[in-house]
Design a protein around this nucleic acid. Structure first.
Lengths: 327, 327
DNA sequence: GGGCAACCATAATGCAGCGTTATAGGCCAG
DNA sequence: CTGGCCTATAACGCTGCATTATGGTTGCCC
């Protein structure tokens, strides 16, 4: 019945003392005020102003509205200010979920970038494997997920329907092979043929990575003998270092969890997992989410922020260089 | 930018959990909500809802608006309630101004009537002669004035331009003559001819009444010798009773300030003053003012509430009857 | 796995709120 | 009595905002 515009007008009339100057102060024309008041009056059913001579005076009801206008408009302004802060990146919260190996590199850099660019935006972070993070996204428990999908495999798509989400490519993470330093193929100049490891004992990572291993090996014509399974890639490399087997290991993880007793080598056929940021069609337009997305993209795309660790033989890596790669 | 309708919609969505039921709870159709939200979103520049699957969830900005909606709408409701109370006569204040002889009869009855009919409406009363009460009306210091004007005379119009006001006839107050009980004409059956008092000593009331006396006497062909002037009609009658002169005295006053030693008689040529309620074109539509106006009209028109005191010779008046006329 | 129910989006349409300019009318002062 | 300063009204146009009708998904349930 009564709207904010009407209250604004009544307040302006009370403050200015005339329709004309109220109109000027609000940026309206004089007749606009005149008929605005008339409309209001016939809505509330009682005169709001008393026009006597060439002056206008508020009636009791008019004064009531002018008085309430302050409260209402202040509350409205507060609401506007709050959303304006959210829209202007002076406030906001992004709940990010990422898988473990991203949490060590990509995510911290991106969090720092967002914090530097938009101090008012706060980010919370939860570590979760892609299926869980996507479920959280769907359930509205997080706004942005960093997930990965093995290119050419339907591993990810089988578990969660990515179509309902919006994905942004961050980087291609090449899948390498981890060998004990004393392994016969450890000093091979060329990439290691996967088939050459057909008879090796295999150590598998997370379930989805295991799926990828089986898929890849199947294409290479063999079924790997999986001796150990663990989601902890530090453990994986420990097992490899102890000579208990070989493992496929993504580049990003190799850089993160570096073990000097392990040799990381490229492998043929080459394969990669695609690391993506995932959000919803709506959330991608929320400024804070967009800013986080941007920061992730920047980190993933900038060699300075996230240096590409060349897949090198262990003997070409010294501790100092490794330290550089740890954040 | 943000209006109350938008907030109402956001709150409904937050409460109901879907556009469809929010629409139902607000009495809108579903598409109305849909495009309302879209409009709001493009106004504030950030998504307000996250549509994932067939459910909608509020974003941070959406929650902010929904949260503020309570405050804003509560304040708006308070404003509406206040004007509704004024419009519905559950509240309101009428500042009434009336001339002295009306304050004794008309006004108290009318005030009581308003109080009985609309207990929420309060009335304040100020005694003032017509010129002053009309000035107060013009200055916005009162809402309703009870004034009088001598019919056929421009006395009132000369002093204040009644055209800018709205007047309502209340009653015609016949002008009578007050004579000492032992006056030669006191027992005349017929109305007293004014000319017969051409040589009498005259006592004049208020300035405007004095003007009326001069006007009337002028038409009757004489100039009255005014011995005394006082605005107090009790004093006027006291002077008459003491045999110090005769006086013109309006019926209403005669009834109010009854003096047993004075005879009140009709006079020819007859004349009357018109008692009117005056307000402004706008104020007459303010419910409380209209109610007061109505009450005044009712009192003036109802013999029960304001009995007509017949102009009788003193010998036909006994104290008991007189007491009846005093309210 | 297929159909059905629920939910949101879009299109097309109509009305009314709400602004504009132009003009008229009334009050008050010099 | 005239000029300036008010407000009111008229005529007009636009845009907001509602409607109905329809389509596309999603997700549940048999």
């Amino acid at each position: 019945m009564i709207d904010a515009a009407g209250l604004r007008v009544m307040r302006a009339i009370a403050d200015e003392g005339s329709f004309t100057s109220a109109a000027a102060s609000l940026g309206y024309s004089q007749p606009a005020i005149s008929q605005m008041v008339r409309r209001l009056e016939q809505r509330v059913g009682t005169p709001l102003v008393d026009r006597v001579g060439r002056t206008v005076r508020l009636t009791e009801a008019g004064h009531a509205l002018a008085r309430h206008a302050g409260t209402v408009l202040a509350a409205l302004d507060a609401a506007e200010e709050e959303v304006a802060a959210l829209a202007g990146l002076r406030a906001g919260r992004v709940r990010l979920s990422a898988f473990p190996s991203a949490s060590a590199t990509l995510v911290p850099k991106a969090l720092a970038l967002v914090r530097d660019r938009f101090p008012g935006v706060s980010m919370t972070f939860t570590e979760a494997e892609p299926p869980e993070s996507l479920a959280a996204l769907r359930a509205g428990e997080c706004d942005l997920a960093v997930a990965f999908t093995y290119a050419g495999t339907d591993v990810a798509r089988g578990e969660e329907d990515l179509d309902i989400f919006v994905t942004r490519h961050l980087l291609d993470d090449e899948v390498l092979v981890a060998l004990p330093t004393d392994h016969a193929l450890a000093s091979l100049e060329e990439p290691v043929p996967l088939r050459a490891l057909a008879d090796a004992a295999w150590i598998a990572g997370c379930p989805r990575c295991r799926g990828h291993l089986l898929d890849l090996a199947g294409r290479a014509g063999f079924t790997p003998a999986v001796s150990f399974e663990t989601e902890d890639y530090v453990a994986v490399q420990g097992l490899v270092a102890a000579g208990l087997g070989v493992a496929l290991i993504p580049d990003l993880i190799a850089r993160t969890a570096f073990n000097p007793d392990v040799v990381i080598r490229p492998v043929v056929p080459a394969s990669r997992r695609e690391i993506v940021a995932v959000t919803t069609a709506d959330l991608q337009h929320v400024p804070a989410v967009a800013a986080a997305l941007e920061a992730l993209t920047d980190v993933a795309g900038s060699p300075d922020l996230l240096p590409t660790f060349p897949a090198v033989a262990a003997d070409r890596v010294d501790s100092e260089a490794v330290l550089d790669y740890h954040l």
